[in-house]
């Protein structure tokens, strides 16, 4: 089967998964304790007011009908009305989704750039002082809470040294939105100043978010490489007199990275999850903080939309990882 057919099949397979997720979260969001309409309109709202809004939201209809309406709306790109902003949730999310994805993808790239080479280096120089230092840093990186690291970085690098901005995504020079990624939008507009500004704002939150993931990647890369070095075929290569550098890069690396790739897929999901704390600390206007607020306000349409979108992002990330297995390991066949 060609790779395109495989991708198509996998994409079709996403539909039942997403539908299951939708049914689950739709039900949970609607049976959460507390009356969302009363909460949205305030304690003083009259009964008539509450009833009117309930009808507007379609909450007076049976659950199955509400679900049907929701799915029909979804097909047309409507996520339902938010109880906090009184506008379509899709409009609320559009800007914040770009902010979170930009942060998470930058953090993922940073985590890979720092984590994988550090792990490789550790494995190659096993039990040397470099290995010990890397392992020490990695363990603390996993253990330190992200929000705390974020606050420390703010106090030292941003407030005391003034090297970075403390909060936000830009200094009032947001580029015209095309992708929702400020860095890319700025480049598309040829606005170098906005690009540098966006990167400058991205640096601390992305680093804070990336740190624990980088540490995890470093630890797994190290363990996985050491495992590969123990394999018999490596022994055979050694016996043929092939140099250690060539063995590591030419023969061991690819095999070692399959496990790492799995973790990278999972890391993407974890980063979205952990982005909540980082977004709050750095006032990053992202979807994770939006989702957390939505749960507290029992803004059910927003809860459903955020879960659905994060779920979709997670599934797509795993699909990409599955495809990359084939690139790394020729034994993998799509079918």
């Amino acid at each position: 089967m060609s790779i395109w057919l495989y991708i198509l099949r996998r994409l079709i397979e996403l539909v039942p998964t997403l539908l299951g997720l939708l049914i689950l979260i739709f039900l949970i969001a609607r049976v959460m304790p507390g009356d969302p309409v009363k909460l949205a309109l305030g304690p003083e709202a009259t009964q008539a007011q509450v009833e009117t809004f309930r009808t507007q939201l379609g909450l007076d209809q049976p659950l199955w009908k509400q679900f049907g309406n929701y799915v029909v709306g979804l097909m047309q790109g409507e996520f339902g009305v938010s109880l906090r902003t009184f506008q379509d949730v899709g409009d609320d999310i559009r800007d914040s989704l770009g902010a979170t994805l930009e942060l998470v993808i930058t953090a993922l790239i940073l985590a890979i750039l720092f984590g994988v080479p550090a792990g490789l280096f550790s494995a190659l120089h096993r039990d040397s002082w470099i290995d010990n230092v890397t392992r020490g840093v990695a363990i603390s990186g996993v253990a330190l809470p992200r929000f705390w690291v974020g606050i420390l970085l703010q106090i030292w690098l941003a407030s005391m040294l003034g090297l970075f901005p403390i909060i936000g995504r830009d200094s009032g020079i947001a580029p015209e939105a095309t992708t929702g990624f400020y860095t890319i939008d700025a480049l598309l507009n040829g606005n170098l100043r906005a690009f540098v500004n966006a990167l400058w704002h991205l640096a601390l939150p992305a680093f804070t978010l990336a740190l624990p993931s980088a540490a995890q990647l470093a630890r797994l890369t190290r363990a996985s490489m050491i495992e590969v070095f123990r394999q018999q075929y490596i022994l055979v290569h050694r016996a043929y007199g092939i140099g250690p550098q060539r063995i590591a890069w030419r023969y061991a690396l690819r095999n070692g990275l399959t496990a790492v790739l799995t973790l990278i897929g999972l890391t993407f999901g974890a980063l979205i999850e952990n982005a909540v704390l980082v977004e709050v600390v750095f006032s990053w206007p992202g979807i994770s903080a939006y989702g957390a607020d939505a749960v507290l306000a029992k803004d059910f349409n927003a809860v459903v939309a955020v879960t659905l979108i994060i779920g979709l992002a997670f599934l797509l990330a795993n699909l990409i990882v599955d495809l990359l297995y084939g690139v790394l390991d020729p034994r993998v066949r799509y079918g």
Partner: peptide, 8 residues
């Protein structure tokens, strides 16, 4: 309990 629950 969540605020929404107190309201309810």
């Amino acid at each position: 309990v969540p605020w929404a629950r107190i309201v309810e």
